[in-house]
Design a protein around this nucleic acid. Structure first.
Length: 574
RNA sequence: ACCCCCGUAGCUCAGUUGGAUAGAGCAUCGGAUUUCUAAUCCGACGGUCGCAGGUUCAAGCCCUGCCGGGGGUGCCA
C-alpha cells in the first residue's frame, strides 16, 4: 500500500465534501510527509491554495475540513490540527501504524505494489566505446542505469537492459589507420585496450595535424561501413578485445545486461529508416547532406546523413528506436547518458515523434565528471581508469576491515572488503542528484564514514548480528508471536520510516532519481543507529525485547532490499 | 551570438517539484564504551541560498535582468 496515495485520495474526498460546488483540479489536494515531526506525520496544504477559488479564508477552509474529519471516526487518524495560515497536520494512530508494520514485516515486498505489471521498459545505459578503456566518466551511467534497472524490475516491469556499445563511429577510421601504421604486437597481446587506445591517440594526433590523414581515416570508415573484408576483420577484433575487458568491469560491479547490441547492429536498418524519414518529408538535402529541419520544435537542424554518404549517430539512434519498438514494443525507453547529449536527444526524439513513434522516450542525463584541475579526456591522457578506481576502493576497504575486524577469517575479509569498496564507489554516485556536476575526489568516492555505503552496510551488519545474538541467547524465543510496541519515540519514527518505503521507491523511479532512495536509506539507517545506540534490545524485558528484535528485523529487511536495489551488497558481518 | 545546466555552511553535497525554524557528511571543538559491532551515538560551531527586481497567503525552488562556472550549437558520439 502507498500511504501517501491513500491519504491523498481520502483527503480529496473530504475537501470536495467541504467545498461543494467549488471545482477542485486533480493535483490540487495532495498529502505529503512532513519535513519535521513537530508538524505531525503527514500534512496537507490545499486549504491555502484553494482559498482564492473558494473565496474563503484558508484557515476557515482548514477548520471546516478538520470539523468534518473530527466528526467521523477514523481507524488510521489520531487527530488533525490546523496550524499557521491553514496547514492541516495529520497525526496517524500508532496502533494503526503498528498494524501496517505487522503486514510489512511479513511481506517479502515490504508493501511495494507491482505498479509496473504488464509494462515494458527498455533501459539504454553504460554504452562505452570500443577501443577505449572504461574510466570514471563511465561509472555514472553504469551505476545510475543499473539502479534504475533493478528498481523497475522490482516494481514489476519487464525490463530490457541494453548496452548500446559505441562500435560504429568515426573513431574506427582513425583507429584502423593507427593500427596499420603504429601497431606494437607484443603490447597488443599483453595489454590490448591500452595498445588500442595508444594507437587511437597517436593516429588522432596525426589527423589533427594533417587533413590528408583525416581524409584517409574517413575513407577507412566508409570502407568499413561498405563491408570491406579486411577492415571488418580488424573491427571485429577490436570489439572482441573490448567486450572482454568491459565484462571484467561489469562482473566486479555486478551489472548484467539483457542485450549488448552495438550501433553496428542497426546498420542494415539505416537505409530503410532514411527512406521513411524522406518519405515523411522530415529531412531534405542541404549542402550535400540530408538534414532534418526542426523549426516547429524550435530545435536546430539535425544531420541524418553526412555529405560523404556515411550515417551519423542521429541516424543510428532513430533506427535503434524503430528496431526496439518493432521487436519489444516497450512502453518506455530510458537513456542514461551525460549532459552533453541533451540537444542530440531532443532532436532525435523529435524525429521519432514525427515518424509517429508513440513510445515514451526519456533522457536521464547526469552532470559530467570532472577532476579538480578541470576536465579530462582520453586525448589529454589524464583519465582515471575504472579498474584502478575499483582496485583502490577495495584496497582501502580491505585495510579498514583488517584493522577493525581482525578476528574475521581472511577469506571473508576479502569478500567484505569487496562489497564495501564497490559499494562505496557506487553510493558516492547514487547519493547525489545526478544532474549536478561532479568533481571527482578519491576521498569522496571512497568515503567510508557518514553518508556512505559502508555506513549503511555497517548499520545492516549490526542488525543482522543482533538478530543472531537473540537466537543464540534465547533459542526458544519466538519474536513473531509478540506484538510490536512503540515504547520509545525513536521506535515510532522507525515504524513510520518503514511504512514510507513504497512511496519513496515509486517516487525515485518516477523521477529517475535513485538518489531519493539513497537518501531515504541513509535516513533509515541513521534513525536505526540512534535507536541501536540508545535503546537496549537484548537487555530489555521480555516482550519489549521481542518487539525490538522484530522492529530491527523489519528495518534490516528494508535496508537490505533498498541497498540491493541500488546494486549494493549488504554483508551479514562487516 | 544563441540554447541548456549549475551557483546553498570553510570544503563536498541534500533540499520530497511553491510550504512552516534551509539540512547532512567532511573539517574544527566538547562529550559517550565494565553494556546488543565506536565504520557508531549525543552536543557545539558554522548561512545575505551568486546579485537585483517581480509573481503570492507563502520563494532556495516560478518569471525577468545581470554576474560567475560548465556544456552544447548542420557533417564526432
Amino acid at each position: 500500500m502507498i500511504l501517501e496515495t491513500m491519504l491523498t485520495d481520502w483527503m480529496r474526498k473530504v475537501f470536495s465534501g467541504v467545498l461543494e460546488g467549488t471545482p477542485i483540479e486533480p493535483g490540487r489536494v495532495v498529502v505529503v510527509a512532513t519535513a519535521d515531526g513537530a508538524f505531525g506525520d503527514y500534512q496537507c496544504n490545499a486549504a491555502m491554495g484553494l482559498a482564492r477559488v473558494a473565496r474563503r479564508k484558508p484557515v476557515e477552509i482548514a477548520s471546516l475540513v478538520k470539523e468534518r474529519i473530527d466528526a467521523a471516526r477514523s481507524d488510521f487518524l489520531e487527530r488533525v490540527e490546523v496550524a499557521g495560515p491553514g496547514f492541516l497536520n495529520l497525526y496517524l494512530r500508532t496502533d494503526w501504524l503498528v498494524e501496517i508494520l505487522d503486514q510489512i514485516a511479513v511481506d517479502v515486498r515490504h508493501g511495494v505494489p507491482r505498479v509496473g505489471e504488464g509494462r515494458t521498459v527498455l533501459i539504454d545505459y553504460s554504452s562505452p566505446n570500443v577501443a577505449k578503456p572504461m574510466h570514471i566518466g563511465h561509472i555514472r551511467s553504469t551505476v545510475i542505469g543499473n539502479a534504475l534497472d533493478r528498481c523497475y524490475r522490482y516494481l514489476g516491469y519487464r525490463v530490457i537492459a541494453d548496452n548500446h556499445i559505441g562500435d560504429w563511429g568515426t573513431q574506427f577510421g582513425i583507429l584502423i589507420l593507427g593500427y596499420r601504421n603504429f601497431l606494437d604486437r607484443d603490447a597488443l597481446r599483453d595489454h590490448p585496450i591500452e595498445e588500442l587506445e595508444r594507437l587511437y591517440v597517436k593516429s588522432y594526433e596525426q589527423a589533427r595535424q594533417s587533413t590528408e590523414w583525416m581524409d584517409q581515416a574517413r575513407q577507412e570508415l566508409v570502407k568499413l561501413q561498405a563491408g570491406d573484408p579486411e577492415n571488418r576483420r580488424l573491427w571485429a577484433e577490436f570489439i572482441q578485445l573490448s567486450l572482454a575487458e568491459f565484462e571484467t568491469i561489469y562482473r566486479r560491479l555486478d551489472v548484467k545486461f539483457d542485450l549488448i547490441r552495438g550501433e553496428s547492429y542497426y546498420h542494415d536498418q539505416l537505409a530503410p529508416m532514411l527512406a521513411r524519414v524522406m518519405e515523411a518529408g522530415i529531412a531534405r538535402e542541404s549542402e550535400g547532406a540530408l538534414v532534418a529541419f526542426l523549426e516547429e520544435e524550435k530545435l536546430p537542424p539535425a544531420i541524418v546523413r553526412k555529405s560523404d554518404g556515411a550515417f551519423n549517430y542521429a541516424a543510428t539512434d532513430v533506427a535503434t528506436v524503430l528496431s526496439r519498438v518493432a521487436e519489444f514494443n516497450p512502453d518506455r525507453i530510458v537513456y542514461v547518458t551525460d549532459e552533453r547529449q541533451q540537444l542530440h536527444f531532443k532532436q532525435f526524439f523529435a524525429i521519432c515523434r514525427r515518424l509517429g513513434v508513440t513510445v515514451q522516450l526519456e533522457h536521464v542525463w547526469f552532470g559530467l565528471m570532472r577532476l579538480p584541475e578541470g576536465t579530462f579526456s582520453t586525448r589529454q591522457g589524464n583519465v582515471i581508469k575504472l579498474d584502478r578506481l575499483l582496485d583502490e576502493a577495495e584496497a582501502r576497504a580491505a585495510a579498514l576491515v583488517k584493522e577493525l575486524t581482525p578476528e574475521m577469517e581472511p577469506e571473508r575479509q576479502t569478500q567484505v572488503a569487496r562489497a564495501v569498496g564497490i559499494g562505496a564507489v557506487k553510493y558516492a554516485d547514487l547519493s547525489q542528484n545526478p544532474q549536478s556536476l561532479v568533481t571527482f575526489s578519491w576521498d569522496k568516492a571512497l568515503s567510508m564514514n557518514g553518508n556512505s555505503a559502508p555506513y549503511l552496510q555497517y548499520a545492516y551488519a549490526r542488525m543482522a548480528s543482533l538478530r543472531d545474538k537473540y537466537r543464540e541467547r534465547f533459542p526458544t524465543g519466538k519474536p513473531e508471536t509478540f506484538p510490536l510496541q512503540m515504547t520509545e519515540p525513536v521506535e515510532r519514527v522507525l515504524a513510520l520510516a518503514l511504512v514510507r518505503f513504497p512511496e519513496t521507491l515509486i517516487r525515485a523511479v518516477e523521477s529517475s532519481k535513485p538518489s531519493l532512495l539513497a537518501d531515504y536509506l541513509y535516513n533509515l539507517a541513521g534513525t536505526y543507529s540512534t535507536f541501536y545506540q540508545n535503546v537496549p534490545v537484548l537487555k530489555a524485558a521480555e516482550g519489549v525485547r521481542e518487539s525490538r528484535v522484530r522492529l530491527g528485523g523489519a528495518v534490516a529487511d528494508v535496508l537490505r532490499t533498498g541497498l540491493n536495489l541500488l546494486g549494493i551488497e549488504a554483508p551479514e558481518r562487516i
